[in-house]
Design a protein around this nucleic acid. Sequence first.
DNA 1: AATTCAATCAACCGCTGGATT
DNA 2: AAATCCAGCGGTTGATTGAAT
Length: 339
Amino acid sequence: MGRAPCCDKANVKKGPWSPEEDAKLKAYIEKNGTGGNWIALPQKIGLKRCGKSCRLRWLNYLRPNIKHGGFSEEEDNIICSLYINIGSRWSVIATQLPGRTDNDIKNYWNTRLKKKLLGKQRKEQQARRANYLKQEMKREPGIFVVPDQAVGRNPYWAELPAVSVHPNQDPDIKDQASIKKLLIKLGGRFGDDGQQPGSNSINFQYPLDISTAQDGPYETSMNMFASSTSTMNSINSTGSQLPNTHYDVNGSASNVLQGYNNLLNELVYSNPQQLDGSGSFYGIEDIANGSTGTSSAESSSWGDISSLVYPSIISNYGVCQQGPLQDSGFEELRYLGSQ
DNA sequence: AATTCAATCAACCGCTGGATT
DNA sequence: AAATCCAGCGGTTGATTGAAT
């Protein structure tokens, strides 16, 4: 049996709210509260609106202390960090941004923040590629036979083996090591350049449960991620609803990976430069599988993406060699693998 | 000045899960 | 245990606005 409609669609007004409707709803709720029953509320007030519509209007617009627009850099960082960690759980993210609604954050992410990040990533990508091509051509003139139109577009990917990747493929992250590697990858921040990890505007004040982490430079990586993890824990402790979700290092990797996968797909699929003729991508499969990568060439495309995901980790470690074909992320993971 | 295009955001829609009957 | 109800959530749509042509 199908579900009964929440209201009589024929007698319900849709579309933008008038100031009179707003005033009615606001006045009633401020005086009487919602009464825990949104469906019945519009009838009580004499509004020809669906209860769901009233709820949305109140929560997203009429509720006191709502902020609209003007997101700060700090808020950007929080949104990005949380998105990477928990995915598009806007209501949870909203709990960490007082005055912001899930709808507002969702809109902001979809219309601006995502583009801001993609733009940043592209710029870095182009600069690195141009620099690499210049150096290589100087070193060994004639090694590259690159069609004119490809110069500056994909100078070295053409040398790489094509590996197809399925957008919805879930990484195989069953074992501890794979999970750990992925968590390390997820440890970065997303604000403007120049800000060091320690100065992340999110207040990561909780100690890390390092029981599964290793000594050495990766402890810092783990700490960075665990900082986010701790944020997750604090979110849980503030009463947000996160059923069946574990954000600890040993916990539900699929939840943690949701945001990562979303962003990865967005980055890859929104960048036509990473497409070869057959619609395959270079080297992404290794990333999705949590591989450490085996050659510098294979790691290059991930590096372009990962520079966005954990730039601060990279910049923080002397063990990592910078360069377009020596991706720091994989260098780091290789180091981890050899411990 | 008119038209087209892109960006933004409020609101809607349908699904999910918990509570209740 | 099954059916039903409802709040809450995330994805999507469509109206509006502003910039570009």
